[in-house]
Write a protein that binds this DNA or RNA. Sequence first.
DNA 1: CAGTGGTCTAGACCACAGG
DNA 2: CTGTGGTCTAGACCACTGG
Lengths: 233, 233
Amino acid sequence: MTAPIRQKWQSVRDEVRQRIHAREWPPGALMPNEADLATEFGCARTTVNRALRSLAETGLLDRRRKAGTRVAQQPVAKATFEIPVMRKEIEARGKRYRHELLSRAVSVPPAATAVAMGCGSGAKCLRLRALHHADERPYALEDRWVNLAAVPEARNEPFSEISANEWLLMQVPYTHGAIAFSATSASNAVAIPMGCKNGASLFTIDRLTWNKAEAVTKVRIFFQEGHQLHTLL
Amino acid sequence: MTAPIRQKWQSVRDEVRQRIHAREWPPGALMPNEADLATEFGCARTTVNRALRSLAETGLLDRRRKAGTRVAQQPVAKATFEIPVMRKEIEARGKRYRHELLSRAVSVPPAATAVAMGCGSGAKCLRLRALHHADERPYALEDRWVNLAAVPEARNEPFSEISANEWLLMQVPYTHGAIAFSATSASNAVAIPMGCKNGASLFTIDRLTWNKAEAVTKVRIFFQEGHQLHTLL
DNA sequence: CAGTGGTCTAGACCACAGG
DNA sequence: CTGTGGTCTAGACCACTGG
């Protein structure tokens, strides 16, 4: 069923992976060098290099100059998650998306937030709280701070029609960010709009976004009870 | 402070990223083709290809044959997490690691588990429950099913000294797997060994591991209250 | 059909770190 | 010092797909 792999570097990658799984090259073993493998596989060294590099990126191989390439002793699992725009995530599940702005106000964030964003302790930020609905059922609650020093245009944007989630992506480029996953217990302020019990266990994403040296936005998203984030290894 | 980038493909990647952030190539815009960029940057097309490929992998670019390379309209954030062996994770935080086996029994898993693992409904599995301690405080609770048809050696392994986590990694290769993150509410069976309140909100990882067409193990790990999983974007 | 990205090659030079 | 991976090049052919 699966189409045969035509690309040579993928064949090499698969063959190497195969040998590792077959214990031909057990964990910790030193593999032949690139030039020898290229000869054996009848291809250019560049091709072997690409294959081995891709395996090293997944953590299966450990490569060092002069020391050579070794099979990792304890491969560290690397899981890559895609964090799509909320609208797309919901529509991809075949549900209808709706965005509801709960509150919008300019204020000075609490000290902990200001520190995390690295903006002055008296800096004005725009705070937005919004619900993302899937088929009219609350799917996620978003609690966001937007740094007005970095994004002055946000002051004039109502965010009633378009979610801050999407608006920021369109308007403001970002250079880097940090993200954290955790589990939190629903407080009243969260449980009431979400329609879940107080104390319910909610999957939570915290995300901080920067543009150069300036924090753009900090957002915490609470997902409805039972929400899971999946991926393949 | 940061060492200058010597590799040309990284310079090209950074320059392209720069232009995108500067709106020189706004979202949706069509970029010049590889050959033209190679001329402009004074390098081989291969080098440009590697730079653009790396940007496409992070979701910033959208590349299609004949259609060319475009800046993504809504870059999908991709977060990569490393899921290390529990021992290393704890020791990396400067804490002392200890593994405690709570129970070990051979039995037939519940239907839902058997289905998820794709083993026959009457298949014998080894069930292990264990605590991972950090400085003698419960750090995570592991609830695992090991498919004895795939790993018969596990029947004779006590798992008192070495955790199943590490033993399986050493003994059994795997070809692929699935992983899911969620938030669960601590039942009594979890809360008591973990020393947290019943109903506490716990970050939870479910992981299913396969070797070829055979399920090797299914594990659910509950982390102590407040646990976070971090990464950079 | 034809333009674009995807890949492969043979050869070269270099940075790094082991011995 | 020397072997190894990391990178770069110039050129080539190919697969895919938009027009």
